[in-house]
Write a protein that binds this DNA or RNA. Structure first.
Lengths: 337, 337
DNA sequence: TTGAAAGCGCTACCAT
DNA sequence: ATGGTAGCGCTTTCAA
């Protein structure tokens, strides 16, 4: 059966329902003895709190909503998965919505979720409806990834610096001819900085800026294959490759395998965004990536802060620098090479 | 600003709040004139209903929860994505939980989600806690995939028949030596039925029953590679391959590419579970798969039925037979081959 | 057609 | 330490 209320418990325990409420909320003002008794009875009766009532009476309920970004990819999947697991440890409920930012926020709003996390790129501009929805939302919003809107807390990612550190690493390993596959302007910036800073060889062909859809789109994919093949067959064959995302990584690995290129013997690779798949499939890829655990810890810690202080702050929680993870897709070049 | 209540609207319209309530719920008993006026004012004041209050007073809220299955894989991702999009068209809110069935159900319960969809294999047994949670849940539960529990509606999938139809197709295309990679007993049954029914060649080596973790687990993956390589180098080289899941497909495509096997020239392939990735990566795979759109439509239609009738029914909504999708990974064999 | 009143389950405030 | 009471915003019933 359901529908056990605090009044039922109160009756069973021979106390009043406010007393039960206090016990269930760990509030002070109840003797240790009755406290224990009430707790026992509540458990016995399999009491489940009614969030609607609790909410009507203005209480938080330790819940967090995640707005799934409008990007395909395993990185978010793992982010999401980790968030669920870590949040569970802290007894925070989490819900995911893939309905688009505005719609998702509205849903969360209606269902009493009190903290919302989303992932937006720096290019993101909130639509008017989103702003309107945000006015109604009484909880906290935290944006990861560079997007911003008034009142939201921010977790920024220095992608440029991340790619730059990958370039430094490759340079340290003796690579002078490094190509880049991707489209993110920040990452391109990090790549160029690496080229300049280390005085590396560079030709325009080294920057393969494939269109955004080359992960699934066949045309883009072919364009990628053709461009890379031309580069590989040309005089300026690179010894290393930076892949700016999981999408480019999957696409390129196919291209490389169809060309029969061995990694890292013939070509070294560093990819952006670390996902478990990269550590087994098909070579153990070196990556540079924001740490999912760090990201999640930041969010969850901020959730607690929010629960303590309650009001919106609109501050930058941290600027995360993607970390290099060395595995076995980069080879050290001999001096003479 | 927030916090516009029906009382505010009532005041502004010079009526009582129950009248406003009726209008907002499209209930009868209000003159057309005041109805229009109230609607206008509500919109003007940017009224947002308070679900907590509405819920306390026992009302549904057109929301649906999806329990993410305890399986990695893109198929569920696309299922989930499609569900969001289709549900949005019908103005149903959807939330996803990846916290495990019991925990997820509890969360949905607390947040007044009134219909829950989950995906469980026939082997699934509800834990006691799940049953307990189910008692509390006043909405409808629908299980896809073969799992069952009292009161839940069921959408079954005849995987065996699906694989069998793949076998029929391959047989029609002239294949007599067909191997199988996977572990699902139902699918193995479909495979064996196909072998027997068509009098195909068979040796135990044709059934590569790799352990469940061979998608990500390195050991399993190697085992798979070794077993398949042995088969390929042996006297009984198959001309076609059935892959029983996305996991085996990804793993095998790697193995095949490292062996330099061309598809479909040297080997034809049919895989189970259709996902967009299969249509481009790296060859356009033929698949046999339950239709995501059919699945979603069944669920959403049943949601409406539930909203009409309200009580739990515990019936089987449909037995879905996976459909064959022909692309270009199967070659027609000459008679002499 | 309309509105007054009760009540959903809970928390907060203020007496006791 | 305890409990009576009010009230959160809404729907529902019933009387006017």
């Amino acid at each position: 059966m359901s529908n056990v209320t605090i009044k039922d418990i109160a009756a069973a325990a021979g106390v009043s329902h406010p007393t039960v409420s206090k016990v269930l909320n760990n509030a002070s003002g109840v003797s240790e003895e009755t406290r224990e008794r009430i707790k026992r009875i509540a458990k016995q009766m399999d009491y489940v709190p009614n969030y609607a009532a609790r909410n009507l009476a203005n209480k938080r309920n330790r819940s967090l909503g995640l707005i799934w970004p409008d990007v395909e990819g395993l990185f978010y999947y793992h982010l999401c998965d980790t968030l669920h697991k870590e949040a569970a440890k802290r007894r925070i409920d989490v819900f995911v919505s893939m309905s688009g930012a505005t719609h998702a926020l509205r849903n969360f709003n209606e269902h009493f979720i009190d903290y919302v996390v989303c992932w937006f790129s720096p290019m993101w501009m909130p639509e008017d409806d989103f702003i309107r929805e945000k006015e109604h939302f009484k909880g906290q919003i935290t944006i990861i990834g560079g997007g911003r809107t008034e009142g939201a807390n921010l977790i920024l990612i220095d992608r440029s610096e991340g790619i730059f550190s990958a370039m430094q690493y490759l340079s340290t390993m003796g690579h002078k001819k490094i190509a880049f596959v991707g489209i993110d302007p920040e990452k391109i910036k990090g790549y160029m900085k690496g080229v300049l800073h280390n005085g590396l060889h560079f030709t325009p062909e080294y920057m393969i800026t494939a269109p955004n859809d080359f992960y699934y789109g066949t045309e883009g994919k072919n364009g990628l294959a053709e461009r890379f093949t031309a580069l590989w067959r040309g005089r300026d064959r690179p010894t290393a490759l930076i892949l700016d995302s999981q999408g480019s990584a999957f696409a390129m690995i196919n291209v490389l395998s169809s060309l029969g290129i061995r990694i890292p013997d013939e070509l070294s690779i560093v990819s952006y965004d670390d996902i478990p798949e990269f550590s087994v499939y098909p070579v153990r890829l070196d990556t540079v990536s924001p740490s999912i655990h760090e990201l999640i810890k930041l969010v969850l810690d901020d959730y607690e802060v929010f629960c303590q202080h309650g009001e919106r702050r609109g501050e930058t929680l941290k600027i995360i620098v993607p970390e290099l993870i060395v595995r076995e897709s980069v080879r050290k070049l001999d001096v003479k090479e």
